[in-house]
Amino acid sequence: MFGYVEPDKPELKMREFEVFRGYYCSLCKTIGRNYGQLARLSLNYDLTFLYLLLDSLNSELVKGKSERCLVHPLKKRFVIFSNIITEYAAAMNIILTYYNLKDKWQDEKNIAGGTGYIALKLAYKKARKKYPEKCEAIEKYLAELNALEKSGCEIIDEAAEPFASIMRELFQFEHIEDDVQNKALGWMGYNLGRWIYILDAYDDIEKDVKEHNFNPILRQYQYNNDITAFKEKVKEPVNFSLTYSLSEVEKAYSLLNIEKNKGLLDNIIYSGLIVKTDKVLQGRGRENEEKSIQGPGH
């Protein structure tokens, strides 16, 4: 998970921003309560979006209260009351971060990754107990992804498939019983996952060239030692792939029965995602990295 899914802040209403931060803080606190304070560092925007989206499918009022917390000791913040969806998003956040760090440790011997991976191990075990089926499915897709990386997959679509499938799995939450909604959620998850994966691959081109990492874009378009020319060459097809995926996200989103937070969700779907796409395509994708760890509002 990479934290690319976020609102387009300048277009957001103050109230919507407060609500978004309320969801973010709620998820952060739930992670702290269930998995220990250290695990809160793993929180990212993509899971906040999942929590917000799933919660917006029921018509219960958004309720919360102002609270202080460790990260912001001086100012009280609006925090939304947690429910089963918060618990779910928190567990998924732990599981994905754990796998991500483990992968980093095993592939690159990244020290930070290794430390985090050991620190999260207990939290992961606890989360896994709650959602064993989801974990199994995710592991299956990660194994596929690993195999594709090892074989040096030369097809971007194919390389994006496992991560997209993981996101499809996450978006299909067991407590949503309506089949129609679940189908639309699954397709939305798949396309959003695909978008995240390809966007991240494009964002990582320089780094992956330097460190000789696997990158499906480098493989498919046969990289030839000139990063600027290469990026120019692949920009058009990558842009199409990303934008088309987003148009499918939007179509699936249109079919969901959104009961609340519509302005905020619309902002993310119709503005936030495309703004992010353009930022990354223009090479400004890493600007907000620190912010995404600390949370909105800094």
Binding site: I155, I156, D157, E158, E161, A164, Y190, N191, R194, P237, F240, S241, Y244, S245, E248
Partner: peptide
């Protein structure tokens, strides 16, 4: 299948 690059 969602493979838009190859589809295209």
């Amino acid at each position: 299948r969602g493979w838009y690059d190859r589809g295209f």
